[in-house]
Amino acid sequence: MIEILQNSKKEVANSIHSLFQLSYAVEAKLLNLKYFPPLKRPIESYQKSTSVFYGYLVEKERAGIIEISHSTTYTEINSLAVHPMFFRRGIGKGLIEFVFDSFDSKHFTVETAIKNIPATTLYKKLGFHEVKQWDTEIGIRKIQFIK
């Protein structure tokens, strides 16, 4: 089941932060990074965010979260995190398909580290194609996709 998350509530923001920390720790290890900016995101930024958060529940356990920004012309996937206990179970795919079904946008965009093979593979399977690549200030090669 997928539900909207009331991120302005402190306890919900805390739970979003916790899941993102677990997921991003795995991504940082995958990318072989000691400093990974998403791990530095404070709880307050989730609570004050104007993005929309949706959670994927498996037997009342929050298994994944997607954060989006939406306008009439595009929907941007700002963040997608899956709890490590639920990797490889279709949670990320389910959240992205939910966004496709819920928002009538001309374009959907997402970006990730190019070395994040699980994410880039998923995005390509779901019909995204590469738009550009660039290097961040801390040396992470990023890739942007659009659908």
Rank of each mutant, 00 (worst) to 15 (best):
G94M: 03
L122G: 00
F98N: 08
M1E: 02
K40R: 00
I96F: 06
I117S: 05
Q133H: 14
S102L: 02
K132F: 08
G90D: 07
A25S: 13
Q144G: 08
L80R: 05
F128A: 13
K124N: 06
P38D: 08
S51W: 00
P84R: 02
S18I: 10
E44F: 01
Q6E: 14
H129W: 07
N7P: 02
H83W: 11
I66R: 04
T50E: 00
E27Q: 09
E111N: 12
V52M: 03
L33K: 04
S105D: 06
F87S: 07
Y56G: 00
D104A: 15
G92T: 05
S79W: 00
L57P: 00
H17S: 09
N78W: 01
G127S: 13
P42R: 04
I114F: 06
R141S: 13
I16Y: 10
A25H: 06
S105Q: 13
G55V: 01
E130N: 04
V99G: 05
L39H: 03
K106G: 09
F128C: 12
I65N: 00
E67K: 01
F108N: 11
D104Y: 13
K132C: 11
L80W: 03
I117A: 08
Q47M: 09
T50S: 09
T75A: 08
N14M: 10
E137T: 10
Q133C: 11
H129M: 12
L31A: 13
Q144Y: 10
I117V: 15
Y56M: 06
A13G: 01
S15T: 10
K124M: 10
I143D: 09
N32V: 01
F100G: 11
S45H: 02
I16V: 03
I138C: 09
S69V: 07
K124Q: 14
S105V: 11
V26D: 14
S23R: 03
L126A: 13
S18N: 07
F108W: 15
Q47P: 06
I4C: 03
N32D: 13
H70K: 07
F98K: 06
L126S: 08
S79A: 09
P118E: 09
F86G: 02
E61Q: 15
G55E: 08
T75C: 14
E59R: 01
E59W: 05
Y24G: 00
I91K: 06
R41Q: 10
T73Q: 14
